[in-house]
Design a protein around this nucleic acid. Structure first.
Lengths: 159, 159
DNA sequence: AAGCGAGATGTTATAACATATCAACCCAAA
DNA sequence: TTTGGGTTGATATGTTATAACATCTCGCTT
């Protein structure tokens, strides 16, 4: 089970690029990409799928970078807060952002087999949801769009 | 904090109606709307907001209808499975379905203040999410659309 | 009527996910 | 050099969810 956004690509390069872009952006915005935070982002980029906080924590611990839940959650909060990662509500997991830099409402395709995640973007806010919000005076602050199903690999190869 | 889908209505009547419709449908489809399941649905209809499983469990226990987590979770699973209720992923909670009967992809407006929930429907599946799924061969099984924010009442009246 | 099986529930234990709290540390600005 | 914000370390606890197994109920069959 590999599925990387469901397609092949030069992954080690994409990790390096993403990491150095993150560093650049943190420098610009005076954010601290500390060792723990950097390592968590690297882990997410390497695996390139949704990972639970405790799964990440185990890997951190193996590196001697903290072994208690708050360490992982704080790093994840930072990454999510600043758009380097997203939280996948449906499965209580986290994944690296595929389009950092620009502000967006992400939409996910989540494979329930291998936890691979593809990130699209939505034009939402129009549509009935936005209309319903308008009509009732509801102030939308955040939108979650997540589709769960099976990626091509897992359709062929159910475990 | 009352906000019932954010608007006023004759609530005791809407509970009765929804319950008897559920009974009718269960009879038709040979589903067992047992005391626990019926009571959970009634609780969700009464409160008319998203409720956690343990909150529901407390009310069940007060009625002598079971006091351990699986009792609540099983009843909720039944209700969700058969379209009488929805799970709100964003806040790990459950709410009665506002449009039972018809099959639909629900979209929610969730007030982070009072947990009131309004249910709209989406035309989704088209849009970029469906397109992305198509393009990659991903088979969508379920879609979650949830907007979090503040309802009109909580905007005026932040606690 | 006795026995069987399916579905529902009861019960215990534990897994999995998340946060509160406070102390220690680092480093840069006053 | 003191002060204060931000980060990390550490302990404890809170919250949500499920595994596993026992029991009950009721309709069906023999």
């Amino acid at each position: 089970m590999t599925a990387i956004g469901f397609e092949k690509h030069d992954h080690s390069r994409c990790i390096t690029t993403a990491l150095s872009e993150a560093e650049t952006r943190c420098a610009e915005q005076k954010l601290h990409l500390t060792p723990v935070r950097r390592r968590v982002l690297e882990i997410l980029l390497q695996r390139h799928r949704a990972m639970g906080a405790y799964e990440i924590l185990d890997l951190l611990a193996a590196d001697g970078l903290g072994s208690q839940p708050p360490v992982a959650y704080r790093a994840l909060d930072f990454l999510v807060q600043h758009g380097f990662a997203h939280r996948i509500e449906r499965i209580n997991a986290y994944t690296a952002c595929a389009h950092p830099a620009q502000d967006h409402v992400p939409a996910f395709l989540i494979c329930r087999g291998c936890k691979a995640v593809a990130e699209a973007e939505t034009e939402l806010e129009q549509g009935r949801l936005g209309a319903a919000a308008m009509a009732t005076g509801f102030a939308i602050e955040r939108i979650v769009v997540e589709a769960e199903g099976l990626c091509p690999a897992c359709q062929e190869n159910p475990e």
